[in-house]
Design a protein around this nucleic acid. Structure first.
Length: 588
RNA sequence: GCGGGCAUAGCUUAGUGGUAAAGCCCUAGCCUUCCAAGCUAGACAUGCGGGUUCGAUUCCCGCUGCCCGCUCCA
């Protein structure tokens, strides 16, 4: 979707490293080697995430008259997910065409007979690296890129279509060595030995293509070429075996193009579990929070004296057996969603979708994600889910690319419709004023909680280069969270930890603030060091009790403390008594 | 899912077929009146499992995980 992705892997690495070092996010099961696609939030991460969820709840539920909360069960009945369509399309074994990726039901692939052409190719990069390694091992100086370039050029220039792998690799190596006269192999090494080493060690990429009735082998070659070029092999020159095999009544080939199909696989992306006394009942870990909202829509309506339009909000865990978790916490197998299903009259759906988009954009601004880092994708026809009349993706510029944070989708009355049908019970709404009966339509703003936490971290991360009076350069690492999202709101330090009076006053301040916000007492090392420690975890304010606080420099300063600001590093003096209101105004 | 690369202390990196090194961080103490000072002492590592070997962190294989490029995302 995104066309101007700017990625910064080095920045991402620093963020991941900071998250671990300071206790924001750890890999789940790390002690035992790690569990792919699962993450644990550490002491600071859980505060950050909680701040986000609490603020979302406050803004979405508590400060609105028209949205109610719900906390549904994670274990979900099979029938619910059959009705919703989550079980249906994915319960049969499926095959993929290895060339076009077309997905076919395994039991519906027709039996085909005919000649099959066998292709075998190797990645030129792989060959290049093997060669470089061998040359180096045998005393030559050879950077891998150089061997790679030379060898891959040789590889894509087939001498003859039917020449063998041994011949082609031999020729490539000879060409390479003659082009690099400085490389001398030791006397004990022969080119056939290197060729044998390479071929024994290399991974080949094989493909079979059935020559369809009425077509010739050229068409099969075309299919193979597409397959290899999609994998970075521009010219499948290394054809080891171009012999033709006969197959009869095989269901392993795509009837459209003759390409080989993958083995049939179960494609359910939901996590299943067993329960009941004998463990023979099936339930699913919900793949989205939305379904319990649809299923309880009528109960909420009947028990809370609400009228359409109104919404039901839910924040909680969902689970998907993602094929390919990637990008730190961005795509996880276990993740948290913040969703609203907003029920409305069919005439209002489009308008409300736009209104929710605006409300959500304001929310992101309020948590410190600037509007200019967000991209709104108006998902075009054909790319939306089939039931959706309008979908906006709200995307953020992550260091690994522009990726979706939230989808605002107008889902029509599809969801209530399928559950009405599945359960055999009416979900029609009766409007007392207009005497109108209809099945409500739904607008769904669905945000990824973990993704948003990650966006907060990425947005907040900053490195500032400082130069002191002596010209000494220092890098200050800061998380510039807006105060309402910061895991710790204020650090409290005695200037000298040996001064009992300062420590006592600090502890008093700590006690007085703790009921209102998360604070952190620290007396270790020099005060400057403590400031920097708090910068690194995004604490917006630090309070220092010093000798002025004790009245040693006059009555005017007695009972006041230094407040130091994270972003500017500037300080101001405030009376202890006014700290709480001063802070509350800034961290809510 | 495909391919490539990588795996040594909390972090960043050395190094070795025979006792694993350093800086930062951390802990304790000394010192210290506002931005990562200094001194002393201390804790902490070869991802997991096989194989070769008298001996493997090092070489080989498998697994797991991470990163990159494709793919996928109901």
């Amino acid at each position: 979707m995104a066309n101007k992705d700017v990625t910064d892997p080095a920045r991402m690495e620093k963020i991941v490293s900071l998250c671990k070092r300071r206790g924001f996010i750890f890999q789940a099961g790390e002690l035992y080697g790690g569990l792919n696609g699962c993450w644990d939030y550490g002491p600071l991460g859980v505060e950050l995430k909680r701040n986000l969820k609490d603020y979302w709840w406050r803004k979405t539920v508590q400060e609105r008259d028209d949205v109610l909360g719900l906390d549904g069960a994670i274990l979900t009945m099979e029938q619910v997910l059959v009705s919703s369509g989550h079980v249906g399309g994915f319960s049969d074994p499926m095959c993929d065409c290895r060339v076009t990726q077309a997905r076919l039901r395994a039991d519906q692939v027709p039996e085909l007979s005919g000649k099959v052409r066998v292709y075998r190719a190797a990645y030129p990069q792989a060959l290049g690296f093997k060669l470089a390694k061998l040359v180096t091992t045998h005393g030559g100086q050879c950077p891998p890129e150089s061997a790679n370039r030379a060898l891959s050029q040789a590889m894509v220039t087939p001498s003859a279509e039917s020449s063998s792998a041994v011949e082609q690799v031999t020729k490539a190596i000879e060409d390479f060595l003659s082009a690099h006269a400085s490389i001398e192999l030791s006397d004990t090494v022969t080119i056939p030995a290197i060729v044998a080493d390479i071929l024994a060690d290399i991974t080949f990429l094989d493909l079979k293509v059935l020559i369809l009735e009425g077509k010739n082998s050229d068409s099969a070659d075309k299919v193979a070429k597409k397959f290899y070029s999609a994998r970075g092999i521009q010219n499948p020159a290394l054809i080891v075996d171009s012999a033709l095999l006969d197959v009869v009544n095989s269901t392993s080939f795509n009837p459209e193009n003759g390409a080989e199909l993958t083995e049939p696989r179960q494609f359910n992306l939901m996590l299943q579990t067993n329960f009941g006394a004998t463990g023979d009942q099936i339930a699913y870990l919900r793949p989205e929070t939305a379904q319990s909202i649809f299923c309880q829509y009528k109960n909420v309506l009947d028990s809370n004296r609400v009228k359409i339009p109104f919404g039901i909000a839910q924040c909680g865990k969902s689970f998907r057996n993602e094929i390919n978790p990637r990008n730190f916490t961005f795509r996880s197998r276990e993740f948290e969603q913040m969703e609203v299903e907003y029920f409305c009259h069919p005439d209002d759906g489009m308008r409300l979708t736009d209104e929710w988009l605006e409300a959500r954009l304001k929310f992101y601004g309020d948590i410190g994600i600037p509007r200019e880092k967000l991209h709104i994708l108006d998902v075009p026809d054909g790319e939306r889910a089939f039931y959706s009349k309008k979908t906006y993706d709200i995307e953020y510029e992550f260091p690994f690319g522009i990726q979706e944070l939230e989808g605002v989708a107008y889902r029509t009355n599809y969801d209530l419709g399928v559950h009405e049908k599945g359960a055999g019970k009416s979900l029609v709404y009766f409007d007392e004023e207009t005497k109108e009966k209809y099945l409500p339509h739904v607008v769904e703003p669905s945000a990824g909680c973990d993704r948003t936490v990650l966006a907060l971290l990425c947005e907040a991360f900053d490195e500032e280069t400082l130069t002191d009076e002596k010209g000494k350069v220092d890098v200050r690492t800061i998380l510039r969270f807006v105060p309402r999202m910061a895991p710790i709101k204020v650090g409290i330090f005695p200037l000298l930890k040996k001064n009992e009076e300062q420590v006592r006053i600090c502890r008093d301040i700590q006690k007085s603030l703790q009921p209102w916000m998360n604070v952190f007492y620290d007396d270790g090392g020099a005060v400057g060091r403590r400031y920097r420690r708090q910068d690194e975890v995004g604490t917006p304010f630090c309070v220092t009790v010093d000798f002025d606080t004790l009245g040693e420099n006059g009555d005017a300063l007695q009972g006041t403390v230094t407040v130091r600001h994270r972003d500017s590093m500037e300080q101001e003096r405030l009376p202890i008594a006014s700290l709480l209101p001063w802070l509350l105004e800034r961290v809510r």
